[in-house]
Amino acid sequence: MRESMTKQICTWLSLLTLMLTMGFALPTFALEQEQTYIIKKGDTLWGISERFINDPYYWPNLWANNPDITNPHLIYPGDEIRIFGGRMVLVPTYPSGKVAEQQETPVTETAPAAKVKPAVVEKTTLKTGGGSEGFIHAGEKPLGIIVDSVDNRSLLTEGDTVFLKMNDPAVVSVGDTYGLYERGEKVIHPTTGESYGNMMHDLGYLQVTSLQGKIVTAKIGKVFREVERGAELYDYVPPVMEISLKKAKNELEGHILATQAEKLTQGQHDVVFVDLGLEDGLNVGNMLYITRPRTVTEKSLLTPDTQLPDDLLGAAVIIESRAKTAAALIVKSVKTIYRGDQVLSITE
């Protein structure tokens, strides 16, 4: 064994000598350069995340990994953030609860680097992947239903021709497009017990091809699952593939009402539905924190009535907003998310 290892070492030394003789350069390893940024008035965690590591959704990690940030709205001018290796660490200079001076502070860096461009959060965009995949029905009447198909099949799919029963055939024209939905489970508020209606699952869409009196014929377009007779028709909403992120105008608090496809656990890229909507001032592009109350454990040295900061679970962006509810795409999750978890609007 020892003789074999000696031969192997000699072989490596011979190869190294040959490389040096032939002029091969040995690899050099650059030391990781650290940048330091001083927070200025108007900065946000998600804006800073986008500017320095090209990931506006990194900020939940920044918050979760820094216990000094008990409230993500409260980062102060003068606080220091260190950026290295695609990571960011906050080094607060103000004690909790102290109001910092609202003044401009220059950017400082430990190594020469290009000037940092000012963050313009309003122009940050998000690729959504297609849409909400449904909505919470709040009493709206369907525009019509599928009553049959030309070949009397029970399960329908893309390309099939179907007959429709429309509530008002007089307003229907050839070429009109309608969204197809399946009525699902009832949606009950997880804390108040209030009924919000039914979950409507997006099946796809169809397009009207001909009109003969009250008989409306249509062809099914792209579908996401099998379609059956009785599928309900609503106004077609084209999928929004990209939206602009923007701060909410009001401080809003709510809960996750329902989840996509009745999943028990949620994470990044899942869609959830919240009990806030247009009537509350929640609009497409608004960002939400997802949190959960943190409780004192039995083994803790704190008293049971101690108020601990909420546990950050992730962040979401509103991709569709209706009167009382909205669909939100989870863009970052640092912990498992459940129905009933809290949501807070991002206003800063």
Rank of each mutant, 00 (worst) to 15 (best):
E251P: 01
F24E: 06
K186S: 14
S300L: 11
Q33M: 11
L257V: 14
D235R: 15
R82S: 03
A25R: 11
E242R: 08
A327K: 06
R225G: 13
W46R: 00
L62M: 15
I318N: 00
D43R: 15
Y338I: 04
L329R: 02
N152R: 08
K249H: 05
S210A: 13
W46A: 01
L344D: 06
T191I: 14
T217E: 15
G134Y: 03
G285R: 06
K249D: 11
D43I: 12
L308H: 11
I256Y: 05
E298K: 15
D341Y: 02
K263T: 09
L156W: 07
P112Y: 11
L233Y: 08
S4P: 02
V91R: 01
H189W: 07
Y181E: 06
V116F: 02
G78T: 13
A25T: 02
T44W: 15
T265E: 15
G130P: 00
F135P: 03
K222P: 00
T93H: 12
V147C: 07
M1I: 06
E80F: 04
Y289D: 09
S4N: 09
V223N: 10
M5T: 10
E185L: 14
V120F: 09
R82D: 03
I215L: 13
E251V: 12
E279W: 02
G204N: 03
L312T: 14
A258G: 04
T157M: 13
I330C: 08
I290C: 06
L164C: 04
N286Y: 01
D280N: 15
I330R: 06
K324E: 05
S244I: 00
P238D: 02
T325N: 06
W46E: 00
K247A: 04
K335H: 09
T44P: 03
T157N: 13
N61M: 06
I243H: 01
T28I: 15
K141D: 10
I346T: 05
A327L: 08
V331L: 05
L155A: 10
D43Y: 14
V208E: 11
L74Q: 12
E348R: 12
K115S: 02
K141P: 03
A258K: 07
A261F: 12
E109D: 03
H189G: 02
A316H: 05
E228L: 06
V317M: 08
D168N: 12
V187F: 08
Y236P: 11
K123T: 08
I39F: 09
V343R: 04
F84G: 04
A231Q: 10
G204D: 00
N66C: 14
A111Q: 14
L278H: 05
Q268K: 10
Q102G: 02
R225T: 14
E228W: 03
Y338H: 13
Y196F: 13
A231R: 05
N167H: 13
G23N: 12
E242C: 10
K115N: 01
L18I: 11
L276D: 08
V284N: 11
V343P: 01
M19R: 15
N65Q: 11
L282H: 05
R339G: 00
Q212A: 13
V272T: 06
G130D: 00
T192N: 01
L276N: 07
T177A: 10
Y58R: 01
I188R: 01
D68S: 14
L155S: 10
V240C: 09
G179F: 03
T105V: 15
I136A: 05
G97V: 04
T36I: 14
M287E: 09
V317D: 00
Q260M: 11
G197P: 03
R87V: 10
V116S: 03
